[in-house]
Design a protein around this nucleic acid. Structure first.
Lengths: 219, 219
DNA sequence: ATCATAAATAACTATTTAGTTATATCAAGA
DNA sequence: TCTTGATATAACTAAATAGTTATTTATGAT
């Protein structure tokens, strides 16, 4: 256990700055974020930010990498390979939904990075390492389902991964304009519950063969 | 026909400012956009922008509303109701894909507005008017498909609309981080072609009954 | 205890930025 | 043709902003 009330604690200061930066970058994007706001929120000061991180963009990169790392860690903890394929898939869809819902800053950080054409993580070794085996788990799941004659064969794991994320991410990232365009509150408890159910059913229909779907219907 | 080489042409000046603003807002987001850049790009000057639009945020709102209007106009031109339901659905999926691909500024403008929780269009009368009958076309298509015993009954038109957009929009808006995470160029001609095919097939599987899908397979 | 180093703070600076003021110029109607 | 109002430009300003310099203070090693 680390000492708690040290007057000087570089690790803790760094941690506080990162946490504050995450909030500010998520709220305002990289361009709109203010280093003064980050420093104040961290109950530190600008000079410390520059001392530990060099500049605003490096800080952004580290915050973003951390956000990806957290997401990957959470996903790894799912243990899909012991479960029955259809149930495992539902679990994966639910996980994506809940994660984006509970960690809205992940969405805005990723959006911000894409606005900048991913220049901050483009040559990030850490990002590359994290991405390894990411698609592998989806591929394994699809293979298991196909072997059990439940899923279509030759499903593309990358396309599936993108689609599973898409139907959750898109709904949630565009929740504000969506609520106006569709003239309904997309974030009401009822709407959220319905969307999750819809998404689980959607992914099932994508991967399962017509025969499997028929069986599921008549159960 | 309007005179072309007038030294003073308020309508043309406004148009140039709007066009320049669209480029700048799309490239840098609302927070990152610079009014000086907009003025210079429009070959006008800042004072004109303030004269005609009042401030940066109003200009942003007008640019965004125009972008939505263009999208809705293009969609309206599709004439889905004369076509066979499954073909019409494919046409709608293709339209969404092509539109987002050919008008990337639509995506970044919408993303930017969502970062700001849709505050600029929240009470926009024009947006509300545009949204009318938007879901109606999808509903009509789903009804036709259901009546022909091709589609599931009781499909939610809003969920479908969101999903059809999602599988195109998400792929394209996150093209940069996606290309890193999945270690493949998501924007190569081959990748784009494959994604569109995947999306058409995906939506078919969502709406069609297992029986319809079986028939399509064996054709 | 003392000293060297790292951690922390505050005050500062050079630029950038949204928005304004002051001024000039065109074009249409009297 | 003269006047008036709208169109256009340039120069300006006050506030904000990323990044720095100067200075102080705590802490761990000796």
């Amino acid at each position: 256990m680390a000492a708690k009330k040290q007057l000087r604690d570089p690790e803790e200061t760094k941690r506080r700055i990162m946490a504050a930066a995450k909030v500010e970058f998520a709220k305002s994007g990289l361009g709109g974020a203010r280093v003064d706001v980050i420093a104040a929120r961290a109950k530190s000061n600008k000079r410390m930010m520059y001392h530990y991180f060099g500049n605003k963009e490096t800080l952004f990169r580290l915050v973003l990498e951390d956000a990806y790392a957290d997401f990957r860690e959470a996903e790894k903890a799912l243990e899909l390979d012991t479960e029955e394929p259809i149930a495992a898939l539902g679990k994966l869809v639910s996980f994506n939904w809940s994660y984006f819902l509970e960690n809205p800053e992940f969405i805005t950080l990723v959006n911000s990075e894409n606005l900048h054409k991913a220049k901050h993580i483009k040559s990030s070794k850490r990002m590359q390492e994290m991405s390894r085996n990411f698609v592998g788990r989806m591929q394994a799941l699809l293979d298991r389902g196909a072997a059990a004659n439940l899923f279509h064969k030759n499903l593309d794991a990358v396309q599936m991964q993108i689609s599973v994320a898409a139907i959750a991410y898109h709904y949630l990232t565009n929740r504000y304009t969506g609520s106006i365009v569709f003239e309904r509150d997309l974030m009401s408890a009822k709407a959220l519950k319905e969307r999750l159910a819809f998404n689980i059913e959607t992914v099932r229909r994508i991967v399962c063969t017509p025969e499997t779907l028929r069986k599921l219907e008549t159960e």
